[in-house]
Structures are given as structure tokens and as C-alpha cells.
């Protein structure tokens, strides 16, 4: 869910707002939707990254990979696809960091009420977006994230 919303926001807002828009959008969405840090980062990275890489890939295809080849040479990359990937990574890092930071603020400002049960689920971007849609409750499961549950989950789903 967070991934799709960010993907759409990054695309729509990209034509209106400055280049750092995905970071702002991801921050807001990270605050609003995800249930744990890993899912925040992953959905943020994937949402914004796919928006940037997707648009770049479309423009590249329409251009018969002419410009991407030249930019690849400029940055000492092997192929134009690396330029598309780099575009995605830059967008993705903005989205991922933004969503994670947004999520962290939320976790600090509105901590989860004690005693709410959690059910572990996978932490990948794909399963997270599916989670949002099916309403399966999630849980922070990984060791590298803090065990801050998402108190806003009910509101979000």
C-alpha cells in the first residue's frame, strides 16, 4: 500500500515539485502507513525507486538508449541500463530514507499502546504492500529494527 501510494505520489508530484519531492512524500507516507522500520524503508525505496527507474526506462526506450549510452560513458558505467538503475537507486534512497525517517518520528511521537499483539510476517516490499491490502496485521520482526509497533495501523487500513 505504502509502496503504491509513494509510487503514484512520486510520479504525479515529480512534474510539479523539485527533485527532492520523493523524500518529502516518503517522509509523510512513512509517518502514516508502515508498521515497522524495515517495511518503511523497503516500501519507500521501492515506491520512489520504481517511479524514477520506471520513468527513466520509458524515456530510455523511446530514445532507443541513445542518451543513456552517452551518460553511461560520462559516468564510466558499462551500459545505459546502469544509468537507469542509478536513477532508480537515487530515487529509491530518497524514498527509503524518507520513509524510514518518517516512520521513526511516528514511532517516537505516537508510541504503540502496550500489550498489542503482533504477528510476524515477511519484511519484503512485496509482502508489505500485500499486507496493506489484505489487512493482515504485521509485526516488527527483524533484529535491525526497533520493536516499535505501528499504532496507526488501524487508521491506515
Amino acid at each position: 500500500m505504502a509502496l503504491l501510494i509513494l509510487f503514484a505520489a512520486a510520479l504525479a508530484g515529480g512534474y510539479i515539485f523539485p527533485w527532492w519531492w520523493p523524500a518529502i512524500a516518503a517522509y509523510g507516507i512513512g509517518f502514516w502507513l508502515p508498521r515497522n522500520a524495515a517495511s518503511a524503508f523497503a516500501s519507500g525505496f521501492a515506491g520512489a525507486g520504481l517511479a524514477w527507474a520506471g520513468l527513466a526506462a520509458f524515456l530510455d526506450w523511446r530514445n532507443h538508449h541513445l542518451l543513456s549510452g552517452r551518460i553511461a560513458a560520462l559516468f564510466h558505467l558499462q551500459t545505459g541500463w546502469a544509468v537507469v538503475a542509478l536513477t532508480g537507486i537515487l530515487g529509491g534512497l530518497m524514498g527509503g530514507l524518507g520513509a524510514w525517517a518518517g516512520y521513526a518520528l511516528r514511532a517516537y511521537a505516537m508510541p504503540r499502546p502496550a500489550g498489542v499483539a503482533t504477528v510476524p510476517v515477511g519484511g519484503t516490499a512485496g509482502s508489505l504492500s500485500a499486507d496493506g491490502e489484505t489487512g493482515i496485521p504485521d509485526s516488527p520482526e527483524s533484529a535491525d529494527t526497533d520493536a516499535d509497533p505501528d499504532p496507526g495501523r488501524t487508521a491506515a487500513t
Binding site: 515529480g14 512534474y15 527533485w19 524514477w52 520513468l55 527513466a56 524515456l59 530510455d60 542518451l67 551518460i71 542509478l86 536513477t87 537515487l90 530515487g91
Partner: peptide, 9 residues
């Protein structure tokens, strides 16, 4: 690299 106003255009 911003695909909305950078070199991709």
C-alpha cells in the same frame, strides 16, 4: 538524474 527535469528529458 531526476527523470522529471534532469537529463532524461
Amino acid at each position: 538524474f531526476n527523470p522529471f527535469s534532469g537529463f532524461w528529458l
